[in-house]
């Protein structure tokens, strides 16, 4: 059983489909990672168009209140196992927008972030490092953000409620995760 789970983790780590939530300027460095120079498909990493088919949600850049709502909606639509990667300084501590009235400075208060990539913006080399790091974490079974989200649901929901002033309503009732 354990061996089988290891094999599954291996397959998961070699086949990461990304939902690229390109909110900020950091998305500019992703096209080189996709095309022939860096070619992320050689690791099995592909961009996906819909959250239902994605494994990773990649938040590139600053997060405003309005986009955060959409990010949470998209995250809750993804089937587990799922991972969150925060890309650039903005979702880590606000970056250059740290004192803006519109942005949310820390993404990890609202979603369980598995991997941070610092930089403004992270270069393509940093992106490749991020991909390999994420693959390693998934293969070893270290990235378990989606379980955190279920375990600490009250904490995340409380933070979300504080920010928006009301509960986000989901009609996605078929599964507990």
């Amino acid at each position: 059983m354990v061996e089988w789970l290891k094999l599954v983790d291996k397959a998961r780590s070699r086949s990461i489909w990304m939902l690229m939530y390109c909110t900020g300027c950091g998305a500019m460095e992703l096209p080189p990672a996709m095309t022939s120079r860096f070619d992320m498909e050689r690791f099995g990493i592909m961009p996906m168009a819909t959250p239902r088919q994605a494994d990773v949600i990649l938040v590139t850049g600053y997060v405003t209140k309005k986009t955060l709502k959409r990010i949470i909606y998209a995250y809750e639509q993804m089937p587990a196992p799922k991972w969150v990667v925060s890309h650039g300084s903005c979702p880590i501590n606000g970056g250059v927008y740290w004192d803006s009235h519109a942005t949310v400075n820390r993404l990890d208060l609202f979603l369980p972030v598995d991997l941070y990539v610092a930089g403004c913006m992270p270069r393509a080399e940093a992106n490749m490092k991020m991909f390999t790091e994420l693959m390693d974490m998934i293969a070893k079974g270290e990235a378990r953000g989606w379980e955190e989200y279920v375990k600490n649901r009250d904490y995340y929901k409380e933070n979300q409620r504080k920010l928006f002033g009301y509960d986000l309503v989901f009609t996605d009732g078929r599964s507990a995760l």
Binding site: A11, S15, S36, R42, Q77, M78, A80, P81, S175
Partner: peptide, 23 residues
């Protein structure tokens, strides 16, 4: 002009998709 995924990539995708939760 890319390296491209290994030719077993679709098997890996298939295993991964089979073991995901349904939503």
């Amino acid at each position: 002009g890319r390296v491209g995924p290994p030719i077993t990539q679709s098997w890996l995708d298939f295993v991964k998709l089979l073991t995901k939760k349904v939503k």
